[in-house]
Nucleic acid binder design. Structure first.
Lengths: 219, 219
DNA sequence: CCTCGATGTAAGCACTTGCTGACTTGATGA
DNA sequence: TCATCAAGTCAGCAAGTGCTTACATCGAGG
């Protein structure tokens, strides 16, 4: 019901959005179409799942011929893997400021969850739940999730090779599981009242959960 | 890797398991095959999703011809709807003891989550996240989840038409979202360390979360 | 024994899906 | 101007999918 077969080549418009304005937009920019394909694919894969997403649909989203997917990414699985890699990279750089307090990290995670249905990026988390059956992509997916877990756990006081703090790792993953569950219920499942809840309503309970799990403010 | 193309007609064996022992098992028992098909389908749908599940696969799981699916359930969507209905019924009767304390309800939910990867029934929760695109089945799915939410919320003190306790409803759904997230991470995503965590390790943090969310012991 | 309805099977149709190879189109430089 | 090559299109194949139709087989009643 949301976006159907329109949009044509529109998505290509913001390729090389003006970084230094050399390539104005010739309509024939390989890297731009590649990026547009990944963007469209990621959205589809995240919301509809791997199998339910067709390459024809992705191509039509971008307004480009299907054959380009095979030209640029070899196969549907190749495109999926590219999506995984890109998502992995983005999550990496987003969380690349290591010296954050646990409170800041929690606030960021909450914002991520709350904004998921509206913005594009937070759907990355959803994508990390999807599996294609491809070994490679699945490895990337799991590694990214585990990396994400360790980052969160580290902010909560977990240190590698410390048997005492091992439980923190598990708790961090429970926090991520909670986030994933909420995002799923809000986007895919469309279940009331979570789906229609305002961000403000969600923030308080989420803060409580994450606080309990990750020991907000030295608790 | 778990169950492949074997099993043949084995699943039919436990049809009419001995309720009153009239129909011994003729090998040609319509209701038994129907039940076996629903059981196999539910497992496939829950773990692999709707689109990735093929009717041929389900039929082969049971050891029966594909055409029977269309004979008994009209279509793949019909079979999916039957799965939803059955799951809805089971969750209904499981929680049909209304006068439970919130602590008991929480313990049950925890047990549900912890046992999900091993047993059959807890995967029902996972199934409730899957969508087929069929209007009817989707309605059942959402209604069941919302019903489940209200039950949990009611145990936590929520009363209909009470604006004050409206937040409890949201918190109950957050608890369900958490459960769903954990089950997903443990079964589908296979992410460490949650996937390999023992039930005991999970119980304590989960109890904490649900306690904070649902006000365990009059908090 | 034979008929008849119910249970199950085999073959295949119509359609989708991922993918391919040959082709066209546009930009660029000698 | 035009040869060249990358960027993109087109038609179609092979496999897979849901589903249907015609047929086989079993159990029971006349």
């Amino acid at each position: 019901m949301s976006n159907e077969t329109q949009s044509s080549t529109a998505d290509l418009g913001e390729a090389a959005p003006g970084a230094d304005g050399e390539l104005i937009r010739s309509g024939r920019d390989a890297t731009a179409t590649r990026r547009a394909l990944v963007r469209a694919a990621r959205r589809r894969f995240a919301t509809d799942g791997y199998r339910a997403t067709t390459v024809r649909r992705i191509a039509s989203d971008v307004g480009v011929n299907v054959a380009l997917i095979n030209r640029y990414f070899v196969s549907k699985e190749g495109l999926f893997e590219a999506c995984m890699l890109r998502t992995s990279d983005e999550l990496e750089t987003q969380a690349s400021t290591p010296s954050k307090s646990i409170d800041e990290v929690i606030e960021r995670l909450i914002e991520h969850v709350v904004n998921a249905p509206d913005r594009d990026d937070p759907l990355q988390l959803l994508l990390l739940l999807r599996s294609s059956g491809d070994e490679n992509a699945d490895l990337i997916r799991r590694r990214t999730l585990e990396h994400f877990t360790r980052r969160l756990a580290a902010a909560a006081g977990w240190r590698p090779d410390d048997r005492e703090s091992e439980a923190i790792l598990l708790r961090a993953q429970l926090a991520i599981a909670t986030s994933l569950g909420v995002v799923m219920l809000r986007t895919s499942a469309a279940v009331q009242p979570v789906a229609s809840a305002s961000g403000d309503d969600l923030t308080a309970p989420l803060r409580q959960i994450f606080g309990v799990l990750l020991g907000r403010s030295e608790q």
